[in-house]
């Protein structure tokens, strides 16, 4: 465990907890894309199957449980909670996320490390995580203004993946056998997707103006 990875996990944890806190406290999910939250729940459900078969560490298991619990809670709040669901912007959150799931499934069947069910689902989750933020970014573009908690959520998610890239570089140089091309390329694509959001996020933060994303 290196500092980049720990910082990455903590940032990732913060992103989901910030979002869950927002939704729970102000009983609103305005600006939040349910599609992205459902995709993340699917990412965790297909990636953390090994929680029952391989024990890596207490930290690993606890974090997986927290991510599973928080992502499914967020989906439940937006779908089922009688107050929160009213603030869900169904008309604007129209990204057809099945168009993301199917290509990731096919790609996992084509490019993977081992042809086992667990490994295929794990690879699927890696590809899906890379594109899961798209419905949220599209929603932010449409709603123009974004309130700072949603902005923070996307920012923290981008920061977590950037820290993971530093972690992979660190591990590549310290553990020779550590080579995971699939994870590295998908992680890089994911971080690049955030790049333009980052640009506008820093611009607005620097000029101390409300974040405006260009249409």
């Amino acid at each position: 465990m290196n500092i980049f990875r720990l910082a990455g996990d903590m940032t990732h944890l913060a992103s989901v907890l910030v979002l869950l806190l927002k939704i729970h406290t102000i009983k609103s999910c305005a600006g939040v894309s349910l599609k992205t939250q459902e995709l993340y729940a699917l990412v965790f459900a297909t990636r953390y199957l090994d929680i029952f078969t391989d024990f890596i560490s207490v930290y690993n298991t606890v974090m997986k449980l927290i991510f599973l619990g928080s992502s499914f809670s967020i989906v439940w709040y937006i779908r089922r909670h009688k107050i929160v669901r009213r603030s869900y912007d169904k008309e604007q959150d129209t990204f057809r996320h099945y168009f993301l799931v199917l290509p990731c499934l096919l790609l996992a069947l084509l490019i993977h490390e081992k042809f086992t069910v667990k490994e295929l689902l794990w690879t699927f989750s890696i590809y899906l995580e890379a594109v899961a933020i798209l419905p949220q970014l599209v929603l932010l573009q449409r709603t123009r203004n974004i309130d700072n908690l949603t902005g923070q959520y996307v920012f923290l998610l981008g920061a977590y993946r950037s820290l993971y890239i530093l972690n992979w570089i660190y591990r590549y140089f310290t553990e020779r056998h550590f080579v995971h091309w699939i994870t590295w390329i998908a992680g890089l694509v994911q971080t690049l997707l955030y790049a333009d959001f980052f640009y506008y996020y820093f611009e607005s933060w620097k000029n101390n103006v409300k974040l405006q994303l260009p249409a």
Binding site: R5, M63, Y164
Partner: peptide, 10 residues
């Protein structure tokens, strides 16, 4: 012998 790489990251 290189053991199959388990995915130890989140």
């Amino acid at each position: 012998k290189q053991q199959p790489q388990i995915h130890d990251e989140l």
